[in-house]
Amino acid sequence: MTLSPILEAEALGKHVAAATEELDILAGVSFSLAAGASLAIVGASGSGKSTLLSLLAGLDTPTRGTVKLAGESLGALDEDGRARLRGRAAGFVFQSFQLLPELTALENAMLPLELAGRHDAETVAGSWLDRVGLGNRKHHTPRTLSGGEQQRVALARAFAPGPQILFADEPTGSLDTHTGERIADLLFELNASTGTTLVLVTHDEKLAARCSARLRLAAGQVIEQVGV
């Protein structure tokens, strides 16, 4: 049985106007990712990985090409439409965790559920914090949590609304090797158990190797495309 694609990119590109010339920071990216698959976007710093991720998630708009996420063409949606689609279908994990410093772990995990108007936000977020092993730190603020713990909160926040696809930008990039490995284990474990599609930006080859598909970028161009 062939699964229908959840994420498709067609001749995707982005250029920016520099002081004296137009600069292509991404060009000609095309692929199709099946639901439930995992894709690693790898490359050196400045290769365009984060730009590609922001275009795929609709956080930024391309100057060329199209993206189709969960069956909807992002180009046909305005910013609010893209936001609604993300709220419905996508979850996010960032390198710098992006937890709101004034909120507790529980409140951070509740945020996307609250935004979706869910009345069971506290219960669901609480059970996800239990699941990532932070049941006893729910009422701690990010300031009092270690880097690994903060990323666990971010994972709970990302999985809590039950997204179809999860975008992760260097999820282990701010962590030491050991903690990074544990967070990666947790990420893949949750991904497998929930059947979520995973799009992962990383420069960690070991992490990339755990994904079913791979896109390698250099200077904004795809130089290797495996499984997509």
């Binding site: 956080l59 992006q98 935004l115």
Partner: peptide, 16 residues
Amino acid sequence: ADAVALFVTLGATRAR
């Protein structure tokens, strides 16, 4: 600003 960016990323519309 960080909170607003996160809210939009997590699906909040501008009107919201």
